[in-house]
């Protein structure tokens, strides 16, 4: 009890303190180790950007930049190859547009239901199911599009070819519903309860509160979720590769085969384009275009949602 007379522990600690090289060593080393880990993420970005720039540069030594941007023909395997990116962009945007036609109304309606109508219990039940939907691998969605949605659509639209833009577009849309729903719901849940109460007190119905009060207040967050969803749709690979076909075209016909930027990259990789050929470099030029598209979308979404946070 009387520790003045028996100072053993504090003495021991003092003695140990003089030869605690390991502790000191770890104390100095660990921050550097963790900083190195953090720098890897920066290196990854730098690696992506440099890779794309260098290999795209190699591509443009053999193909005119003007041709890449303005030509409307993409025939890399032709005897007289033509590298105009427009057909691939058309295919990509067409798929993205169909996907958004599905994902925006359904995702937003689900968000309104979850945020404004559903009880806590319902929400706790529905949200994990949406998470499951979001967690299904894209190859599974691709399989679903090819073997279920396409035949189903062929019953409705007789002229639909086996590879087409419509089916993968719809399925990409289904894949990103959870993203739109959950991000929009976050934005709507952030709207202060007092704003709802004010509207209810004036005799508004639940629908009017949702559409006239909550929706406008959460608008920037909701729009940011749409933009992020478009970015996801543009970068989606397996669904369009499996069910979209490999027909680069500027035609807007959703019932026939198309090719997206991502599907083209996969097609070349699976083929036997040798290392160092123009065809090989072309996947980097297309990858670069894809990267810029998604980066711009992500930055726009970031700016919009930043503004949204400042409101409250």
């Amino acid at each position: 009890m009387n520790n003045r007379s028996n100072h053993s522990i504090s003495k021991m600690i003092e003695e140990k303190a003089s030869n605690r090289g390991m502790t000191k060593f770890a104390e100095g080393l660990m921050p550097k180790v963790f900083l190195t880990c953090a720098l890897i993420s920066i290196l990854t970005t730098v690696g992506i950007v440099l890779t794309l720039i260098f290999e795209t540069f190699s591509f443009f030594q053999e193909v005119q930049v003007a041709e890449f941007i303005t030509s409307s023909d993409w025939y890399p395997l032709h005897g007289d190859p033509s590298y105009g990116i427009r057909p691939l962009i058309t295919g990509t945007l067409m798929i993205a547009a169909i996907a958004m036609l599905i994902a925006i109304p359904i995702g937003l309606a689900s968000a309104i239901f979850l945020s404004e109508y559903a009880s806590d219990k319902t929400r706790r039940m529905v949200k994990p199911i949406l998470e499951v939907l979001a967690g299904i691998p894209t190859i599974v969605y691709g399989f679903f599009a090819l073997t279920f949605v396409t035949p189903l659509l062929q019953n409705i639209i007789p002229g639909l070819s086996i590879y087409n833009a419509l089916s993968p577009g719809i399925v990409v849309g289904i894949m990103i519903i959870p993203m739109v729903a959950s991000l929009s719901e976050d934005a709507m849940s952030a709207v202060p309860q007092s704003m709802r109460e004010g509207a209810f007190a004036l005799g508004s119905t639940r629908f009017e509160v949702a559409v006239k009060v909550v929706l406008p207040a959460a608008l920037s967050g909701i729009i940011a979720s749409f933009v992020l969803a478009v970015s996801r749709a543009i970068g989606e690979t397996m669904i369009v590769t499996v069910a979209g076909g490999s027909n680069p075209t500027t035609s807007m016909d959703v019932t026939s085969a198309v090719q997206t930027m991502t599907a083209y990259i996969v097609q070349v990789t699976l083929g036997d384009a040798g290392y160092g050929t123009t065809e090989y470099y072309s996947i980097y030029a297309v990858g670069m275009t894809l990267f810029i598209f998604t980066l711009v979308m992500n930055v726009i979404a970031h700016i919009i949602s930043k503004r949204f946070r400042e409101v409250y």
């Binding site: 009890m1 600690i13 140990k16 303190a17």
Partner: peptide
């Protein structure tokens, strides 16, 4: 506390626990 300051001996630690909790 004793551990982070380098005391690892189980017997000493046991004593410390009893003494400190009594204290």
């Amino acid at each position: 506390g004793p551990k982070i300051h380098g005391i690892k001996d189980k017997k000493i630690l046991d004593d410390i626990v009893e003494k400190s909790l009594k204290g």
